[in-house]
Amino acid sequence: MNIGDTLRFFRTKLKISQKDMTPEYMDASAYSRIEGNVRSIKLDELQNIFEKTGIHSSEFFRFYDLDYRQTKFKELYIYCATHLENKSKKNKLIDYYYKLKSNNHKNSTELSNYIAIKNFFGPHWDEVEEITQQEVDHIFSILINKNFYLHHDYVLISNIVRLFSAKQTDLIVPRIIPIPFDKNRNIETKKFAHNTLINIISLKLYAMDHSGAEKYIKLAKKQNKLETDYNFKLNLQYLNNLLQYLMTGEMVYIERVHDFIHILEDIGDDLHADQVKKEVKILTHDKDSKKMLESYEVGLFKQD
C-alpha cells in the first residue's frame, strides 16, 4: 500500500472520519487529497496524525512498505530457494539477475541482491555464475573503505564472508561488530550482523581452525546480551558445544548438540535440523579441511 492507502486503511479500521484524522492546523480538503494520493504528506503532518489517532509509527510502516521492491525480491528469492525446480519463479529471478549482471554501476542494494543470488543459486542453477575472486576483492575494497555500514552492507558481508581470506575477515569484523548505533538499528540488520559471526565461526570449524572459532565465539557472546534474538543465541551455543566436542572429545558436548537438533525437529524446523545433522556429520567424521570447506554452504536464505 502507498501512504494514502495506508492512512485510509487505518481510518476505516478505526471507524473514524477524515476530520478525526486531520490535524487541527490542516485543511480537511488537504487531508482528503493525501488519502487520494494527490497531495504528498510532510513528516510533521504524519507525526501529528499518529499523535491524534494513537497509531504507532512502527505499526503504520509495517503496512506502508517503503521498500516494496526489495520486499518482493526477498519473497521471490526465498520461494526459489525452497522450490528450486519451479520454472516460472526461477525465470523471474533469472531475469532480475541478468539485469543486475549487466549493470556496471550497482547501488548497495543491487550489489547485495546480486551477490545473494550468485551465492545461493550459483551451485544449483547453470544460468547463475558463482562468485569470482575478482568480485570478492572488489567488494572487500568497497566495504573496507566505508565509514558507516547500512543494512544492505550487513547482508552483503553475511553472504560473502565465506570467501574472504582470514586476513580480510579479521580486518572487516572490527568495523561492523559491535554494531555502531545498535539501538537505532532494525531487527533485521542486527540479525544479518549476528549471522555474519555465526558464518565465520562455522567456517573456522570447517577449516579446523579451533582457536579462530573460539576467538569469534567469545566476540559473539558479547553481542545481543540485552535482546531476544534466540535464534542467534541457540545457534551460537550449538557451535560452542560442537567446538568443545571437537577439542575435548567429551560426550556431554555432542549430547547437547543432539539436544539442539531435537529442539529444531520439535518446533518443525526440519530444514535447519537437516542442515545441522549434515554439518555435524562432516565436522566430526571428515578430516580433510579442504574438502570440508568445499562442502560449506552459506547465504541469505540461511539467516532465517
Rank of each mutant, 00 (worst) to 15 (best):
Q47V: 11
K291L: 11
R33Y: 13
W125N: 04
D67Y: 08
Y216N: 06
H138V: 06
G54H: 00
V38N: 04
Q168D: 06
I187N: 12
D67N: 12
I187W: 07
F73H: 05
I261F: 01
P178D: 04
K42A: 08
E294C: 03
Q133G: 15
I217T: 08
I187G: 00
H138N: 14
V161P: 09
A81S: 15
L143R: 01
K106W: 06
I177M: 06
A81F: 02
H105C: 11
K15H: 15
K302M: 11
S32Q: 10
I115H: 02
Y149M: 09
N199E: 07
T132V: 02
D269W: 10
V38W: 06
V298P: 03
A81P: 08
A81E: 08
Q18E: 13
I144E: 13
V173W: 08
W125K: 07
P174N: 13
T82M: 04
L111V: 10
R11P: 09
I115R: 10
D270F: 14
K233S: 12
K233R: 11
D67F: 03
R185H: 01
S141E: 15
V128A: 05
I160F: 06
K118M: 14
I131A: 07
S102T: 12
S88Q: 15
F120C: 00
L76A: 12
A220Q: 01
L239T: 02
V128D: 02
Y64M: 11
R69Y: 15
Y64N: 08
I198F: 05
V298M: 10
L283C: 04
C80D: 05
Q168R: 03
K291T: 12
T53L: 10
T22F: 06
G4Q: 04
S58I: 07
I41V: 15
D288G: 03
F60C: 02
M247V: 15
N195V: 06
K215N: 13
E255Q: 14
R11V: 07
H210R: 03
V280F: 06
L46C: 11
E45W: 01
K225L: 14
N186E: 10
T109E: 14
T228F: 13
K183I: 07
A273E: 00
N48Y: 04
E279S: 13
R69H: 15
N199I: 08
V276Y: 02
T196F: 11
K278P: 01
R185P: 06
I176Q: 07
E255S: 14
T82I: 01
M26G: 01
Y114N: 04
T284P: 00
T189F: 09
L150K: 14
E127L: 00
F63K: 14
I282M: 13
K89T: 00
L234R: 05
R33V: 00
L219A: 10
Y245N: 07
N241C: 12
I144D: 11
L234K: 10
N119V: 02
K87E: 15
S141W: 03
K52Q: 12
L150N: 12
E110Y: 01
D259V: 02
N240G: 01
D153H: 10
V252M: 12
S289Y: 08
G122T: 09
T132W: 03
K278G: 02
I179A: 04
